[in-house]
């Protein structure tokens, strides 16, 4: 039915799972901290071991929040793109956002030596990578939007986004060819993605942009549902296609753009979470899908991050690999079990 009531129970369960995952994520890590102390620290009580206090409040807590924002944001932007492009293979990065970001980062890391050693050290701070990624994805996106304003066909935008991706990938290849092994390694490390490097201040900026992205997504809810009928039907129902398309693209770019800037290119989540959600909720109504994708995205990201931390060991695996390793089998399993794709 066309209401959220039927899904209230599922939402309740999912929210509980989300909260459990959130605390589990904070409790697990390379340093094992007793659960009691974790709770005490979260409640604001001082705990005996100051190092533990520091780890939880300045490292694990912001990391868990980052995981929630990254997972939910990528999931939602994937959902928007799949509906807009009527394509189950679309994800948040079809508009060339990752490729733009990677171009920006590649230019800073591998091109830094061109500017001389003084600039090289200046350029290679963390903020410069964030700015380079944002600028790169913004510029590529701007190009895609400018071109797409001229074409009427939404599918053309999809292809234009992919073409821009190819161009930037080619430029990155050329840059890699001329760069040192050390620079290449640094670039590859950025490509692994990371949730754990954000301070509270950075997280605040992240959250602000994220909220705008979510706001634009909520504004688009009605037109997204109408787009399920196809663009011509949507038009006949009074939807201003160009305007809604623009708002949806802006929402996606804000979400996927900041996430890539702060956490690197996180693969798979944006493509898969909407599918997982549709399999479980079995609806196409975006008023239900949007909050459901939010929760699913956050849960999956928290689980992936907990695994990537390899609890009690000193190693941390690249988050980008874990998301695909954990997520892909889930999607395959769901599709095989239900034997049909819901779209």
């Amino acid at each position: 039915m066309y209401s959220t009531n039927t899904y209230r129970f599922s939402f309740l369960i999912l929210t509980i799972i989300l909260i459990v995952c959130f605390f589990a994520n904070i409790s697990l890590g390379s340093v094992s901290i007793p659960v009691k102390d974790v709770f005490n620290s979260l409640l604001g009580n001082t705990i005996e071991n100051e190092a533990w206090q520091h780890i939880i409040q300045n490292y694990r807590l912001p990391k868990a929040f980052t995981a929630v924002l990254v997972g939910s944001g990528l999931g939602i932007s994937g959902l928007l793109m799949q509906t807009l492009f009527r394509n189950p293979l679309a994800g948040p990065f079809v508009l060339g956002i990752t490729s733009g970001a990677s171009l920006g980062v590649a230019l800073v890391i591998m091109g830094a030596s061109l500017f001389g050693s003084f600039f090289a050290t200046l350029l290679l701070t963390k903020w410069s990578l964030v700015i380079a990624a944002s600028l790169g994805s913004f510029l590529v996106l701007l190009a895609v939007i400018m071109v797409s304003a001229k074409v009427r066909d939404t599918m053309a935008i999809l292809i234009i986004g992919l073409m821009f991706g190819s161009i930037t990938a080619a430029v990155v290849s050329v840059l890699s060819y001329f760069s040192s092994a050390e620079q290449l390694q640094q670039y590859i490390f950025w490509g692994f993605g990371s949730l754990g490097n954000l301070s509270w201040n950075e997280l605040l900026i992240f959250l602000l942009v994220y909220c705008f992205g979510i706001l634009f997504s909520i504004i688009s809810l009605k037109s997204l549902n109408t787009l399920l009928l196809g663009e011509n039907y949507a038009k006949s129902l009074g939807v201003n296609i160009k305007q809604s398309r623009f708002i949806i693209i802006i929402a996606t770019s804000l979400l996927a753009g900041t996430i890539t800037a702060f956490a690197g290119p996180i693969a798979f989540i944006g493509l898969a979470i909407p599918h997982i959600t549709r399999q479980v909720f079995n609806t196409s109504n975006h008023k239900i899908l949007l909050p459901a994708v939010f929760i699913f995205g956050a849960i999956v990201m928290l689980i992936c991050d907990s695994i990537a931390q390899l609890p009690t060991s000193d190693y941390t695996l690249p988050i980008n690999a874990i998301t695909s390793l954990i997520g892909a089998p889930i999607v395959i399993w769901l599709l095989v079990r239900k034997r049909k794709m819901i779209f």
């Binding site: 039915m1 066309y2 009527r86 909520i218 504004i219 809810l221 009605k222 549902n225 109408t226 787009l227 399920l228 009928l229 196809g230 011509n232 039907y233 006949s236 129902l237 009074g238 939807v239 549709r278 079995n282 609806t283 196409s284 109504n285 008023k287 819901i342 779209f343």
Partner: peptide, 28 residues
């Protein structure tokens, strides 16, 4: 129209209800 609708996963009630879009509020 002659064209197929995009999402065949909509229920009949949901699809008919989309006809009310011009009258509903901003979230539909």
């Amino acid at each position: 129209l002659t064209e197929q609708i995009v999402s065949k996963n909509l229920s009949v009630f949901e699809l008919v209800a989309l006809g009310r879009q011009p009258y509903t509020n901003w979230v539909g």
